Simulated scan of single mutants.
Amino acid sequence: MQAQDLAVNGINLHLHMAGPENGRPVWLLHGFPECWHSWREQIPALAGAGYRVFIPEMRGYGRSDAPQDVEAYDVLTICADIQACMSAFNQHDACIIGHDWGAMIAWHLAQLEPQRVNTLVAMSVPFAGRGKRPAIEVMRELFAERFNYILYFQQPGVAEQELDADIARSLRIFMQGASSSDLLLQDRPANSRLFDGIETPNELPQWCNENDFQAYVETFRKHGFHGALNWYRNFERNWQKTEHLQDVKITQPTLFLVGDKDPVATLEAHTISRMPNRVNNLEQHQLSDCGHWIQSEKAKEVNKLLLGFLAKHFPA
């Protein structure tokens, strides 16, 4: 493993790298509330197969900068972080792999960079395209009287106060069970706090040992959750700024993976079923007995699918 800081797009981005320097570039983009270390099972597999692997600590996380302004976290700005990194390494042919919010960035990078992004892998979050109106408007209508964690995240400072008070506890609760969303989607009054009525789990999940867990904790120790939560505060801005991508389909060879116990598989079932109409060259797999943290929960299965897909469409 190597690491370096890159001055890109007005911020300092901390980047981890592995594999042969002349290997074809593969980018691993993490989601919330995760960190670069959430790809710990994929890094050696990809590097061992001959790829040059790039794992950024995304804007707002860990040793990368975390601007205070909400506006600094819209989807095109975050995409520009990765685009600038690719330019810094003179990359013209890359594979982008993303999970959760990282998948959202990967989908947009594929639209923005049809030449440089050769191959795409998205995990847990399907490609929905640009809706007829901002998703946050729909959420406010649907959850006017019930709790919704995304709406709870909207007011700067509120969720931070709860989550930052005990970072380790917050992360343990997020990791609990098949998925954090199992907890966050419980039917509760609209004025609830995020963890109301939720007990702190005594044990970590099987896929995360104590040393791994400390890497997650360390990620949020520097900035707290503010930068990471700001990603959620840009739904309307993202919608406004992506009008030019309205009709842009995904043309690259694409692999989509989702767990059968991931609430996304249920909540976004309609979107998943419609993806072949929007993604021209799509391979999909639903992993059994798997929740949201797919690359950790089912690492061997994910790696097998990943390496098989890359061997076919992006050989090392």
Score class of each variant (00 low, 15 high):
Ala159Met: 07
Ile136Asn: 04
Arg146Tyr: 05
Ala135Phe: 14
Pro156His: 07
Arg146Lys: 13
Arg169Trp: 12
Pro156Lys: 04
Arg172Asn: 01
Ile167Tyr: 06
Ile167His: 07
Arg140Gln: 13
Gln155Glu: 15
Leu142Asp: 07
Phe174Trp: 11
Gln176Met: 08
Phe143Thr: 01
Ala159Lys: 03
Tyr152Met: 06
Leu151Phe: 09
Tyr149Ser: 10
Pro156Thr: 07
Ser170Leu: 05
Leu171Gln: 05
Ala178Thr: 08
Asn148Ala: 06
Gly157Ser: 10
Arg133Gln: 10
Gly177Asp: 05
Tyr152Phe: 15
Arg169Lys: 12
Arg133Trp: 00
Gln154Ala: 04
Met139Val: 03
Glu137Gln: 14
Ile136Pro: 09
Ala159Val: 06
Leu163Cys: 10
Gly157Glu: 05
Pro134Ser: 04
Ile167Glu: 03
Met175Gly: 08
Arg172Pro: 05
Met175Glu: 00
Phe147Asn: 05
Arg169Val: 07
Pro156Gln: 06
Ala165Thr: 07
Leu142Asn: 12
Ile173Ala: 02
Glu162Ser: 05
Pro156Ala: 03
Ala165Gly: 08
Pro134Asn: 01
Val138Gln: 15
Asn148Ser: 13
Ala178His: 13
Ser170Lys: 09
Leu142Val: 03
Gln154Lys: 02
Tyr152Ser: 01
Ala168Lys: 11
Gln155Pro: 00
Phe174Asn: 04
Phe147Met: 08
Glu145His: 14
Glu145Phe: 09
Ser180Met: 10
Ala135Glu: 06
Met175Ile: 05
Ala165Glu: 10
Tyr152His: 14
Leu163Thr: 02
Pro156Glu: 08
Ala159Asn: 00
Phe143Ser: 01
Met139Ser: 03
Ile150Tyr: 10
Ala135Cys: 00
Glu162Met: 05
Phe147Trp: 11
Leu151Met: 12
Ser170Ala: 13
Arg133Cys: 00
Gln154Val: 02
Glu145Trp: 04
Ser170Trp: 13
Gly177Pro: 06
Phe147Gln: 11
Tyr149Phe: 14
Pro134Asp: 02
Leu163Arg: 05
Gly177His: 03
Phe143Asp: 00
Asp166Lys: 09
Asn148Trp: 10
Ala165Asn: 08
Ala168Tyr: 09
Gln161Met: 08
Gln176Leu: 04
Leu151Thr: 11
Ile173Glu: 01
Val138Ile: 15
Tyr152Asp: 00
Phe153Asn: 04
Pro134Phe: 02
Arg172Ser: 02
Phe174Lys: 03
Arg140Ala: 01
Ala178Cys: 08
Glu160Ser: 01
Tyr152Asn: 05
Ile167Asn: 07
Ala144Arg: 12
Glu141Thr: 12
Arg133Ala: 01
Ala165Gln: 15
Met175Asp: 02
Ser180Cys: 12
Tyr149Glu: 09
Leu171Met: 12
Gln176Ala: 14
Phe153Leu: 03
Leu151Gln: 07
Ala168Pro: 09
Arg169Leu: 05
Gln176Pro: 02
Leu171Ile: 14
Ile173Asp: 00
Leu163Phe: 15
